[in-house]
Design a protein around this nucleic acid. Structure first.
Ligand SMILES: [Mn+2]
Ligand SMILES: [Mn+2]
Ligand SMILES: [Zn+2]
Ligand SMILES: [Zn+2]
Lengths: 159, 159
DNA sequence: GTGTTTAATAAGAAATATTCCTATTAACGA
DNA sequence: TCGTTAATAGGAATATTTCTTATTAAACAC
């Protein structure tokens, strides 16, 4: 049985209530790390999140950042993206959405749109039982990079 | 201007001719590394590719594997996937396709289907100039893992 | 074929990113 | 308030990828 509906809007999550519901302790670290991501529109790295939260909480450790991000990802509150230039980026998942990543400057832009996974999964239905997430990653050149430098990338639709 | 057509089948690439066309030297390492991926259906890691090629070429270094994989990716001959459990996986791109990844066992399955990126990009057309690739990554549980263990993953379509 | 040029490689060090280990802390239920 | 134990801090360890430099070999001119 395939779960193939889409996540709907899920904004204004109260992390305190959410952790409690899941039986997880409501630590300052969890609350602050979640808030740091939820308030960012920048797809921050673990390091960036660490630096941001550490201003308010100087004892914070990197291990807690990674551990908490993994927890938040399991809970479905946060999405981990892998950036072509190494390292992961994190994104609060208020709304299911997708990404465009510029191969030149690394900028990540949000793309909001439904994407039907059903047609992709048709041939796999006997091997796949449950869908957790669908993510579309588009790579290319942003307008800025396209106009400012010379590139030799093979693009889609060219021979 | 958005390049939004799809890659068509591109099988039976002759790596020797391809490298030559691009002005790159045709080294044994490049040819063997490309063949190793092209002949694999397994989405191998850099380490796996290294071990496979090293059997035929004992002096091969890991650095050459990474360097060559980056070159092949730039040429559009190979696709790099990031695996949730760390490390990259490589895939020969004979045909544009997408992936299902099991969050329990890590297995990667191919999904062959066109995916229209145009609707996703509509709102970004002024910020995006050229599309290099579109990749859909679906995560969830494979049938085997779904039936053999207990999970508590929030799935799509559930409240 | 021989020699020249230089891109590409091997080896290992270094940098990055992430996870592990363990003593300590603090969240929370009693 | 107290006890239990999940969670954290700090640092070590691991894993992955990139860098540095001397050496090799692919391509090319002769
Ligand atoms: Mn985003
Ligand atoms: Mn594949
Ligand atoms: Zn850019
Ligand atoms: Zn599985």
């Amino acid at each position: 049985m395939i779960r193939s509906q889409f996540l709907v809007e899920r904004q204004d999550i109260d992390p305190v209530a959410f952790f409690r519901e899941k039986g997880l302790r409501v630590t300052h670290q969890r609350v602050e790390i979640f808030r740091e991501i939820a308030e960012s529109r920048e797809h921050p790295s673990a390091e960036t999140i660490f630096e941001g939260v550490r201003r308010r909480m100087p004892s914070l450790s990197m291990d807690t950042v990674y551990r908490t991000l993994a927890t938040l990802e399991e809970l479905g509150l946060v999405m981990r993206l892998t950036h072509p230039r190494g390292g992961a980026r994190y994104d609060s998942m208020a709304i299911t959405h997708h990404h465009f990543i510029c191969l030149e400057c690394g900028e990540i832009m949000d793309c909001f749109a439904a994407s039907g996974e059903a047609p992709l999964l048709e041939e796999l239905t006997d091997r796949v039982s449950a869908v957790r997430s669908v993510h579309v990653e588009i790579r290319g050149l942003c307008s800025h990079c396209h106009h400012t430098s010379n590139h030799n990338l093979p693009l889609m639709g060219e021979s």
